[in-house]
Each structure stands twice: as structure tokens, then as C-alpha cells.
Amino acid sequence: MDPILLAVQTLNGLQLGVLLFLVAAGLTLVFGIMDFINLAHGVQYMIGAYFAATFTAVTGSFLLGAALALPAAVLVGVALERVVFRHFYGRDHLDQVLATFGVIFFLTELVRVIWGPTPLSFPVPAWASHSVTLFGGATYPAYRLFIIGGGLAVAAGLYALVARTRFGMLVRAGASNPRMLQALGTDIKRLFLLVFALGAMLAGFAGLMAGPILSVEPSMGDNLLILAFVVIVIGGLGSIQGAFLGALLVGLVDTLGRSFLTDAVKLVLPASAAVDVGPALSSMLIYVLMAAVLIVSPTGLLPAKGATR
């Protein structure tokens, strides 16, 4: 196996993992604390990308566009919480799935009406559009390194917020026993709203980071949402550390599987069959990983300890 290719693919896996973490973190908090299944979380990611593309085009600066897109994405999240989601807390999961599924349809079509069906152009900022030469002469896009760095920085900040602050204590307490937390004087609805806004911001951030490398189009969040659910199941519901570990695992396994599995299959099967079998296997790989984790540890790798549900 080519060591340079392996290193580059590891970076690719890390970059996917970091984006997945940003989306999964919000999803796992909302699910863990509010027991609320929010399928529309992927829409938050998509909206972040649309806002960032639009504001970047208007201001001519990626950083300025991002700075405007974040609060706008949070505003959409808060509005959704107040208008729709808040009425579904404590309801049956099926009700929540149906309601948030409806929100996906509504917002996806709304975005299509406002911005049109053509994918939006969102160029990589000029200061990161070059390739960096790594060890061994391999090149890697600077912007992807920027995503990895930015994502890890946000992950560190989020960890500090959850582990070191009073707000973080309330978030963790809420994840294990929201009823008791309320009986001790915390306005749980307000906490939910804050957590929701935080989740919307993280997903929006992921969207604006991903926008320049992926096409900005209405359905861009759909695929990622499924992966994010796999991540939080692997990591353990409600657990930020679990989401981080799960996201990196899924990112690496998916990327390395896509790059090396077909070649591995060629060792045992003829090339023509391997070309068929390899892609099929690699697209199943993360689900196999999820099943394996669930067999070994049904509550995920790092569950929010002692969650009462």
C-alpha cells in the first residue's frame, strides 16, 4: 500500500469526520437532552451553506460572509424551534419524525423557490485556493486543511463549553435527567432553545465550511443527516465526546474503505468482479461498523453516562 496515498486518505477521512462531527454534535444534544428526533437538522446545514454563499457573493469576502451567515442560520433555527419543534417535545417519536420530515420538504422547496434549482456557485476563498505540498511530494488542497483546522478548533471550544462552564453542566445534567433539572429551578424550555440554537449554529458552520467544496443545492443536507445519525448511534446518544469519536471513526472508515476496499477485494476475486463487489462493500462499511459497535456496546462507545432513558 502506498504510504503517501494512505496519508492523504487519512487527511480526507479526518476532514469528512470533522464536518460530520459539527452536524452530529447538534443532533446528539437535541436528541439526548430533549429526546427529540430532528430530521430537519440537515436542513440547517444546507441553510448555512446558502446563507454563506449569498453573503459571500454580496460582501465579496468569505470571512465576512461567514460572519453574517452564522447568526442568520441561528435565527432560522430559533424560529423553527419556536414555531414548530417546541410543540412536539414530549410527543411520540413518530410524530416528531413526521413533523420534521414535513419541515424538510417545506424548507427544501422554499430554498428552491428563492434561490432556484441550479446549484449555487460558492468559490473557495482566494487565500486558501492553492494546494499545499505535503511530505513525499503529495499535494493537498489548502482549503481542506482549513476545514480540518477550523473544525477541530470548534470541537475544542465546544468541549470546553460543555466540560467547563455552568451552561455545560446544565446541558449534561439535562441529557441525563431533564425533569430533575427542572425541579431544581432550571427553565428547561429556555435551555432547550439555547441548545437548539447551538446545534443550529454548529450545523450552519459545517454547511458554510463545506459550501466551497461541495455543490450548494437544496438536498445537500440529506445524505449527511443519515451519516450523522450513524455517528451519534456509534458514539452514544447525547454525548459530545461520543459524537466526536464516532464522527472521526465514520469519516476514516468510509474514506479508507472507498479507497482501498476494491483493491483489497481484487486480491481474492478477479478484477471484473472486484469492481462490482468493492463499491457495494465499501458503501455498507459504516453500517457494518455501526452494527458491530451496537453488538459490543448497545448504548454506543461513549454514552452520556447513566442516561435514564
Binding site: 455552568r166 453542566m169 446544565l170 449534561r172 445534567a173 441529557a175 441525563s176 435527567n177 430533575m180 433539572l181 431544581l184 429551578g185 432550571t186 452520556a304 453516562k305 447513566g306 442516561a307
Partner: peptide, 15 residues
């Protein structure tokens, strides 16, 4: 019903 995933000190301080 103490919060199992918070330290003793955090249990006291959080609320």
C-alpha cells in the same frame, strides 16, 4: 436522582 454524569461538585454548583 443525582446527575450521574456530573461530578459531585458540579451536581452542587450546576443548579
Amino acid at each position: 436522582q443525582i446527575f450521574p454524569n456530573l461530578t459531585v461538585r458540579e451536581n452542587l454548583v450546576a443548579t
